[in-house]
């Protein structure tokens, strides 16, 4: 399919997307990936999930082990580069592919990384800005009050700010209750949270307190790393706030337990 054509006009059915699930969704929250597939299909995309995928390499990259990350990045590029579009339900994994692969790789691999970067999108950006998902006669999802955590990589590497809010407005008829200092890190930072637990604990404590101050029933966001961190803190403190990924909210998947909640 001709991409330039797609950029200028709304996509038609049969628009091919490869989903990069991300390792955290694969292992901890499959519902995020299933919700992503459902949303993409609602938007008229044909979704495939390359089965050989594992991890984008962020953990090793961020600890400074570039040598181990390079073959991982190459593996991801080989796996995804034939797709028309790659969609990732995580700002940090999408940022890894879009920004850090080209920084990490050289020569021909760098060119291939840049080509992949050009067609890789974080989920809410893709739904909002590329395929312009609409309700198309479906009823809006009913949600209790929602606050949104801007994950750092998505916010600053990819400029994700308005997209999730717009989708919540349009698909769920929900206005986000903004939390104070929403652009400040939650203290996850990949391996940071286990390397420097006390500092991370202070940061996630602040983030949670700001979220609780909004009196929202649900905290959502686009990155499972942050959400696992915040949810873990919320249950540890016994706070009454559900933490769910934005993909789940947008497709109305609220039946199962929230992150860190039991059955």
């Amino acid at each position: 399919m001709n991409k330039q054509h797609l950029d200028s006009t709304p996509p038609s059915k049969g628009f091919r997307v490869s989903l990069f699930v991300t390792c955290l969704a694969d292992l901890f929250r499959p519902s995020v990936a299933f919700a992503s597939i459902k949303l993409l299909e609602q938007a008229g995309c044909e979704v495939t999930v390359p089965l050989q995928q594992t991890c984008c390499g962020q953990p090793t990259y961020n600890t400074g082990d570039y040598e181990s990350t390079i073959p991982l990045a190459q593996q991801v590029i080989e796996l995804l580069e034939s797709a028309d579009y790659v969609v990732v339900p995580s700002g940090s994994c999408a940022g890894m592919i879009c920004h850090h692969y080209p920084r990490l790789l050289e020569g021909e691999w760098r060119d291939r990384a840049l080509q992949l970067a050009a067609k890789t999108f974080e989920l809410t950006t893709f739904l909002s800005d590329i395929v312009h998902i609409e309700l198309n006669g479906r009823n809006p999802v009913k949600l209790p009050t929602v606050t949104y955590h801007d994950s750092c990589a998505g916010l600053r590497e990819l400029g994700i700010k308005g997209q999730p809010r717009k989708l919540l407005r349009e698909l769920c008829d929900t206005q986000v209750k903004e939390l104070q200092q929403t652009e400040v890190c939650c203290g996850f930072g990949g391996t940071f949270c286990t390397k420097m637990p006390e500092i991370s604990g202070k940061m996630v404590g602040d983030k949670l307190n700001n979220a609780l101050a909004t009196e929202a029933k649900i905290l959502t966001g686009g990155d499972l790393g942050c959400l696992l961190n915040i949810a873990g803190r919320a249950t540890r403190q016994g706070e009454d706030i559900e933490v769910r990924h934005i993909a789940e909210l947008l497709c109305g998947d609220l039946d199962g337990p929230a992150i860190g909640e039991g059955k």
Binding site: V21, A25, D26, L27, F28, R29, P30, S31, A33, F34, V49, L51, C193, T194, K195, P197, E198, S200, G201, V204, L228, N229, A231, G232, R233, T235, R236, G256, P257, I259, G260, G262
Partner: peptide
């Protein structure tokens, strides 16, 4: 320990996505 000293560790939701898919 680093994680759980400050917060709970959320349990996996079910099987892996790859298994389910």
């Amino acid at each position: 320990d680093g994680w759980t000293s400050q917060r709970d560790f959320p349990a996996p939701q079910r099987k892996t996505f790859m298994q389910l898919y």
